[in-house]
């Protein structure tokens, strides 16, 4: 039979845990609102940038002398994976989903005989990948969301990636992050950054151009614009990835902490029931003892 004192201690401890998880849930909810706003505010820019670049890329596709960021280095031997995760845990399956997806990608790339390099944005990704693929991790960038994600930070990451590309350290760059749909659903997304992979040119663009996509005029020149636009696009896409990730992290943490709070509540109810039953049983037993002792006299 469970000891009454042990039960009391246990209930108190679960209650304390519940307090922490419900506080974390509240904090995550507040952060989520801000992160979501920021992510949604940044979407138009990234979308329009992609659209503009898409039509530019379509126009200059296959032409000789296209910038390397667009055309690639002509090889696909060395892959750079930019794995975006959170710096902190306790956010449900958020980090492990991204890491699992990255692992699959790494395994298939290594299986194809490619060299893989990993750039971790977020500490949790590094922690999870270090054991298996420690020698592939070239660096970890932490604290991108502290105190809040800014465009400048993304720009410096993009600059670094561009410089590495120019030095010929990799051929293909892929960004892995979780796209935020709602607090319950986040979708792990792989986005190829280098060479630039144009999204399907949407109907609107073709329509607006009177059916001729490549009818734009360029000022100063097509090449100059592309050269300026491509590194900028890289920064924008990374910025978008970080914002989406941030919103996903908070959403995931909120849901996780919500269910943790609910589980703790269930557990408290259960334990309280056992506690009361035990207490009654003890009283009954004492009564029986007293009565039978009296009868024996």
């Amino acid at each position: 039979m469970p000891n009454l004192k042990d039960l009391r201690v246990r209930i108190a401890s679960v209650k304390a845990t519940q307090k922490i998880t419900s506080a974390m849930k509240m904090v995550a909810a507040a952060k989520l609102r801000r992160a979501q706003e920021q992510a949604e505010a940044a979407r138009p820019y990234a979308e329009r940038m992609e659209r503009m670049l898409g039509s530019l890329a379509a126009a200059s596709a296959g032409q000789a002398g296209a910038p390397a960021l667009l055309a690639g280095s002509g090889r696909a031997d060395v892959h750079l994976l930019v794995v975006g995760t959170a710096d902190r845990g306790l956010c449900g399956g958020f980090n492990s989903n991204i890491v699992r997806n990255s692992r699959q990608l790494i395994r298939s790339l290594v299986g194809d005989g490619k060299t893989v390099k990993i750039l971790c944005v977020g500490r949790k990704g590094r922690d999870a990948l270090r054991r298996e693929y420690g020698d592939m991790i070239i660096d970890t960038i932490e604290g991108v969301t502290k105190p809040r994600p800014t465009f400048d930070k993304s720009e410096s990451i993009a600059e670094r990636i561009t410089r590495m590309f120019e030095d010929g350290e990799f051929d293909v760059c892929t960004l892995i992050y979780a796209e935020f749909r709602s607090a319950i659903t986040q979708i792990v997304t792989r986005q190829q950054l280098i060479p630039f992979a144009p999204v399907a040119v949407d109907e609107e663009v073709a329509e607006a151009g009177g059916g001729q996509k490549a009818s734009y005029e360029y000022e100063p020149s097509e090449e100059e614009i592309l050269e300026a636009l491509l590194p900028r696009n890289l920064a924008v896409q990374i910025y978008k990835g970080i914002l989406e990730n941030n919103a996903s992290e908070q959403g995931s943490r909120m849901t996780a902490m919500d269910s943790a709070t609910r589980n703790a509540g269930d557990m408290i109810n259960n334990l309280t029931l056992i506690y009361n039953r035990t207490r009654q049983a003890v009283i009954t037993r004492e009564l029986i003892e007293i009565i039978s002792a009296k009868e024996a006299l």
């Binding site: 530019l56 005029e217 000022e219 100063p220 614009i225 300026a228």
Partner: peptide, 19 residues
């Protein structure tokens, strides 16, 4: 303010991309 001079945009402007 375009890279090579200011330009005005009215309805039905020709497709155009500029720095």
């Amino acid at each position: 303010p375009g890279e090579e001079g200011d330009f005005g945009v009215l309805h039905q402007h020709a497709p155009f991309i500029s720095a």
